[in-house]
Simulated scan of single mutants.
Amino acid sequence: MYSKEESQKIKREFWVNFAEKYPRKWVLYDTKIKDFSFKFFVDNKKAQVLIDIEHRNAEKRIAYFEKLEALKNILEDEYIKDLVFEKEYVLENGKTISRIWVEKLGVGFSNRNHWDIIFDFFFDKMNALELFYLEYDEFIKAIE
């Protein structure tokens, strides 16, 4: 078991190595939709690529989620399989968001032998989600 400082150091090293292997600018928070973002997540049990819809207005949050849900067949047939769609996802802090994600279980950032597997997973899945988003962003944005 690592100390908090050791764990933070390994995590920093992990992200630096990921950026070196795949040096590109990701969309992430630059979606042009308020509180709609793409995220990477890794801990010592899994790696995830996520779309988080965190709009404070529940109606708008659900409207964006339902836009993505309407595109689910295209998304899964042409871009990425095994996505989990959750309209009401509760974060640890109690906040309810909408979340769509794909995950790889049995990997962790503290095991350097997993890094290339995680990096490739992150690249493949996030790249697919971004390509999908860039193709359908105008449709997704048009909720009003």
Score class of each variant (00 low, 15 high):
residue 3 S to H: 07
residue 25 K to S: 12
residue 61 R to G: 13
residue 83 L to N: 05
residue 78 E to C: 01
residue 74 I to G: 00
residue 94 G to C: 03
residue 47 A to T: 04
residue 67 K to S: 06
residue 126 M to P: 01
residue 121 F to Y: 11
residue 18 F to P: 01
residue 144 E to C: 08
residue 41 F to V: 01
residue 111 N to T: 05
residue 52 D to M: 10
residue 127 N to P: 01
residue 13 E to W: 11
residue 6 E to H: 03
residue 18 F to N: 00
residue 50 L to H: 13
residue 8 Q to V: 04
residue 104 K to F: 03
residue 4 K to L: 06
residue 77 D to S: 04
residue 76 E to A: 09
residue 44 N to A: 08
residue 65 F to Q: 04
residue 86 E to F: 01
residue 124 D to A: 07
residue 42 V to G: 12
residue 138 E to W: 00
residue 24 R to P: 01
residue 14 F to P: 00
residue 17 N to Q: 15
residue 114 H to Q: 08
residue 131 L to W: 02
residue 134 L to K: 15
residue 130 E to C: 04
residue 9 K to F: 13
residue 68 L to P: 04
residue 43 D to K: 03
residue 87 K to N: 14
residue 80 I to M: 10
residue 78 E to P: 02
residue 136 Y to A: 02
residue 76 E to P: 01
residue 115 W to A: 10
residue 111 N to R: 09
residue 63 A to E: 15
residue 114 H to I: 06
residue 104 K to A: 09
residue 125 K to N: 14
residue 57 N to E: 07
residue 73 N to V: 09
residue 8 Q to P: 00
residue 64 Y to G: 08
residue 41 F to S: 09
residue 102 V to F: 09
residue 80 I to W: 09
residue 123 F to G: 00
residue 15 W to M: 05
residue 130 E to I: 07
residue 34 K to Y: 15
residue 78 E to L: 02
residue 106 G to N: 14
residue 93 N to A: 13
residue 88 E to L: 15
residue 133 Y to A: 12
residue 118 I to M: 09
residue 91 L to P: 01
residue 26 W to V: 04
